[in-house]
Each structure stands twice: as C-alpha cells, then as structure tokens.
Computed example of a mutant assay.
Amino acid sequence: MGSAYAYDTKAGKRWEARYRKPDGKTARKGGFLRKRDAEAYIAEVEVSKSAGTYIAPSDAHAPIAALGVDWLVAHEAAVKPSTYHSDESSWRIHVEPRWGARRVGSIRHTEVAAWIAELAATKSPTTVKRCHGVLASILDGAVRDRRIPANPARDVKTPKKSKKPKPYLSHKQVERVAAASRYPDVVRFTAYTGLRWGEVTGIRVRNVDLKRRRVLIEENAVEVNGHVQVGTPKTHERRAVVYPAFLDKAVRAAVKGKALDDLLWPAEFGGYLRPGNAVSGWFAGAVKRIRAEDAKAAAEAKARGEETPPIMPRVTPHDLRHTAASLAISAGANVKAVQRMLGHASAAMTLDTYAELFEDDLDSVAVALDSQRSESLAS
C-alpha cells in the first residue's frame, strides 16, 4: 500500500502519492491539493492492480505518431497490398497530421467524434470510415498494451455509405463489349466466371484443368499505386471455378504453346494484363464506343417517334463480376453456388451484396407454399 507525502510549492502545500507498480518499482504522482485526494488515488491504483487493469501514467504519454509507425509495420504484414496502400494514405494524409503529436492518454471520445464530423463535411463516407478505422485500430493496440483503459474512438458514428445500383449486363451486352474490345476472350471469361480482375490476370497455365473446365484460383495480381503486386486471393483461400462450355475453345487457344508457369491471359506485349485507364483505356474505350452507337440509335428512334432503345450502361471490368452473379442467379443458381463462384467469405455476404437479385425467389417460395398447401388439404 502506498503513502501520501506533503511538499511545498510557490502556490502552496501539495501532496504526492507514492505507490508500487505491478513490477515492484516505485511510482509517484504529485499535484494533489489535499492528502485525502492523494490517498484516494493510491486506493484506485491498488484496486486496478488487483483487477489487472493498472495503467502506468508514463505509458499514456506515448505520442500517436510513434504508435502509428509501429501499427503500420504490423499492418503491412497482415493485409493485402491494396488495403495497406489505402490505409497508409489515410494515416499520412488525415490521421497523422491531426493526431500524431497528441499523447495517447489525452485523446477524448468527443474529440474523435468532432473530427469525424469535420471529415464527413468534405470527404466521402468511404474515406471517413477508413480514417476512423486507422485511428481506432491504433488505439485498440494501445488498449491491449495497457497504455489506456478504453478506446476513445470506438462507438463513434461514421456516415453510412449509400449503395449505388450495380449495372448488370445481359448476355447480348456482354457480347457487344467483348466484340468491341482488344481482349474479347478475357471479357467473356470474366463475365461468366465472376472472378475479380486480379484473379483473372493471375491465372497461369498450370491452374487450368481443360478436361473438367475448371481453373484453380491461387494468385491475385492487383495494381497498387501503378505497380502490379501478386498475392493470394482476397479471402486468402484457393478455390476452383468452373467456366461454361462455350469458353472451352478460347481457353484451349490461350493455353496452346505455353509453359506451365506462363500467364493464361497476358497483356499484348507480355506481363500482367491491366484494365487500362478508367477514361481512355482499352476496356473503357470499348464501352464508350458502344454507348455512342446506342445514343445515336436512340436519337434517331426518337426523331422517328419510335420507342428509344436502351443505352449500354457505364461499366468497369469489376462490373463484369456483378454481371456474372446476375447471369448465374437468373440461370437458377442458388446462393451457395454463387458464393463459391465469387469467392465470398459467406452466403450472408453474397445475399447482402446481391439481395435485389434474389427478390424473385420470394415469389417462387410463396407460389410453392400455396401449391403444397392446396395439395395437402385436397389429399
């Protein structure tokens, strides 16, 4: 048990609490106006020591900048390169400038909430959530290291991300994009397997099973900050994906004459195939040309007083993944099959992502229940 000692200052008499830390070393905390305040602090320390929740005041003095550097080192080894790049940018641009000089023990919940509100006024919900996540993760580490008793960034509300409608292409629209692009077979393969772009471009010849029409997904070639980085698939799990029979000829042609470690779908001049610039790249260019054709046809139909035909939606290579889910579901695939095809961590994730595509299933269930009830009562 510690003791309280008096000492004199220019402002008058003050009291100092002296006690032993869990490691046996003596610690001091002064500045108390009354002896009983110092003794109350000592009592709190003893209770926290017994409960295993003791926080050394000196540990709470660590600056966020130092903790952030340590967090980034550990974070880089734990996440995908693309995730690390985004989180490192959030730390460097938003988190470190605001919180870097602050001592970890001085940060308050209300301050974090005010900062989030400031960010939300000018930044997208995605950016705000990522910045909050970085700070909260750093402070989680501080809690585990017993620098602070609780995380002041937790339970802070962040803006909700609005779900934008996904563009789903029809079979004919997929074919139009493929035919207008520089890599038609890659477009078709992506739209009918549901693979992520990095998974498609990371496939090697040795991953292809021509007899069973399957490809083993074990690499993911992601473009990060202008450079392609190769790692494992997003869920870190290898999976086999089936491709339709009509793609068999294209896959066999892509395999022919290549070594086992060669890429199945390389770029025209070798290396990993990239989707190109979002405005002027080869994929965007194909979509742009089709949309121009459709706009012209729609204008001509309107001038004739006829019903205007639909215009191809703006799509990205990633939207081909959404298209694959849509086409599979419309063909009768159940949620577990779609989950396995897309490589989602759970069926719940698939349902959450493509809930609108399963709406027709509700009608089917109602019709089936009605039919079974009628049959049961009749018998």
Score class of each variant (00 low, 15 high):
residue 5 Y to G: 08
residue 5 Y to D: 04
residue 12 G to E: 04
residue 18 R to N: 12
residue 20 R to Q: 03
residue 20 R to P: 00
residue 21 K to C: 11
residue 32 F to H: 05
residue 36 R to L: 05
residue 37 D to P: 01
residue 37 D to S: 10
residue 38 A to C: 04
residue 46 E to F: 12
residue 55 I to T: 14
residue 68 G to N: 05
residue 70 D to F: 07
residue 71 W to Q: 01
residue 88 E to G: 07
residue 88 E to H: 05
residue 100 G to Y: 02
residue 102 R to P: 01
residue 103 R to K: 15
residue 105 G to A: 08
residue 107 I to W: 10
residue 108 R to F: 10
residue 112 V to G: 03
residue 119 L to T: 06
residue 123 K to P: 00
residue 123 K to H: 15
residue 127 T to H: 12
residue 129 K to F: 12
residue 133 G to V: 13
residue 136 A to Q: 13
residue 136 A to G: 03
residue 140 D to N: 00
residue 140 D to I: 14
residue 146 R to V: 08
residue 148 I to H: 10
residue 150 A to C: 06
residue 153 A to E: 13
residue 154 R to Y: 01
residue 155 D to T: 05
residue 161 K to R: 12
residue 167 P to D: 14
residue 172 K to N: 00
residue 172 K to L: 11
residue 179 A to R: 15
residue 194 G to T: 10
residue 194 G to S: 06
residue 199 E to N: 12
residue 200 V to N: 00
residue 210 L to D: 08
residue 213 R to W: 14
residue 215 V to R: 09
residue 216 L to P: 01
residue 216 L to T: 12
residue 218 E to V: 14
residue 220 N to H: 14
residue 222 V to G: 09
residue 222 V to N: 08
residue 226 G to A: 05
residue 232 T to L: 15
residue 241 V to K: 09
residue 243 Y to A: 13
residue 253 A to V: 10
residue 258 K to E: 05
residue 260 L to D: 05
residue 264 L to E: 04
residue 273 L to T: 00
residue 275 P to V: 06
residue 276 G to C: 05
residue 278 A to F: 07
residue 288 K to M: 15
residue 292 A to T: 02
residue 292 A to E: 11
residue 304 R to K: 14
residue 309 P to V: 15
residue 317 P to D: 01
residue 330 S to P: 04
residue 333 A to T: 00
residue 346 S to V: 10
residue 348 A to F: 04
residue 354 Y to F: 10
residue 356 E to P: 01
residue 356 E to A: 14
residue 358 F to W: 02
residue 360 D to F: 12
residue 368 A to Y: 04
residue 370 D to T: 11
residue 373 R to D: 02
residue 377 L to H: 02
residue 379 S to D: 01
